[in-house]
Computed example of a mutant assay.
Amino acid sequence: MHTPLKHTSAAVLLFATAACATITQGTKQTLIFKMDPDNTVCSLTRVDDGELGTVSKQNNSIVVSKDKDDIIALCTAPGYDSQTIKVVSHASSAGVASGILDLGITDLATGAMFVYPDEIRVNLNKAGQTSPKAPKYSAPL
């Protein structure tokens, strides 16, 4: 005979597992860079990890580990002013749900609680032209 407590415990365990961002969202994310001019190259770094890699028009995506720390992209192209872009990390909705259920311990440890924007636009200005303030990219909530 099944007791109500067994069913309740199973339901809570199932719900907690389903809401865990580590399981549902993963610990890695692909970032896609849209760049102008075509010969732009961006070097990506993160405080704790150092250099993450580079992206260019020919290789415009990179897989990164999710993390609470922002990514800094230094973008350059011959004849253009360089630009530094901060790719901002935010808590994902799955990570927030997980935090409610298990205090987010697993998702904080794996980085799965956080997300970066999927697409980053880079528009460099010709050398000597007034450049707008570097954009800050944030993930949708």
Rank of each mutant, 00 (worst) to 15 (best):
M35Y: 02
G111E: 04
I72W: 01
L5Q: 14
Q83A: 00
A109C: 08
K126G: 07
L101R: 01
R121K: 15
H90D: 13
S56R: 07
P132K: 12
L141A: 12
D70T: 05
V122Y: 00
L52A: 11
C42T: 07
V88T: 14
K136I: 09
P117L: 09
L141T: 14
V96G: 00
Q58N: 14
V47W: 08
K34F: 11
T17D: 03
N59G: 05
A134D: 10
C20R: 03
V55G: 01
G79C: 08
Q129V: 15
S138P: 03
M1I: 14
V55A: 06
S131C: 13
M1R: 14
F15I: 12
I85L: 00
G104W: 00
S89H: 04
V64A: 06
L124C: 05
L5S: 14
A127M: 12
V96W: 00
A21L: 09
P135C: 03
S98F: 00
T30E: 14
D69K: 15
D49P: 03
A21P: 02
T17W: 09
T54W: 02
T40F: 03
N60F: 08
G128R: 07
L13F: 08
P117Q: 09
T45F: 02
L74V: 14
Q25F: 06
A91W: 03
D48W: 04
A91P: 05
P37W: 07
A77G: 07
G99E: 02
S92P: 09
D36P: 02
I62S: 06
L44G: 03
D67Y: 11
N123H: 13
T110M: 07
V41S: 09
D69C: 07
V12Y: 10
D36H: 10
Y116S: 05
H90E: 14
A19G: 13
A94N: 07
K57A: 14
S131L: 05
Y116R: 08
A21Y: 01
F114E: 04
S98N: 14
H7R: 15
E51V: 12
K6T: 12
M35R: 08
L103G: 06
I23A: 14
V96F: 00
A109M: 10
T22I: 03
A112I: 09
A11P: 00
L44H: 05
C42F: 04
K66R: 15
T40V: 11
P4S: 12
A91T: 13
I32E: 10
V47M: 09
F114R: 05
E119H: 13
G104D: 03
L52M: 10
T106Y: 02
T27L: 09
T40K: 04
S93M: 11
N59M: 11
G99F: 01
A112V: 09
P132M: 06
Y137C: 00
S98V: 02
T8A: 12
V115T: 15
P132Y: 01
C20N: 14
E119I: 15
V63K: 13
C20A: 13
Q25H: 15
I62M: 08
F114I: 04
P140W: 08
R121C: 03
T8E: 12
D81F: 04
P132W: 02
G99M: 05
A19R: 01
D102H: 07
K57I: 10
P37I: 08
G128I: 06
A112G: 11
Q129T: 15
L52Q: 09
D81M: 04
A97L: 15
K6H: 11
N123A: 10
Y137M: 01
I32L: 08
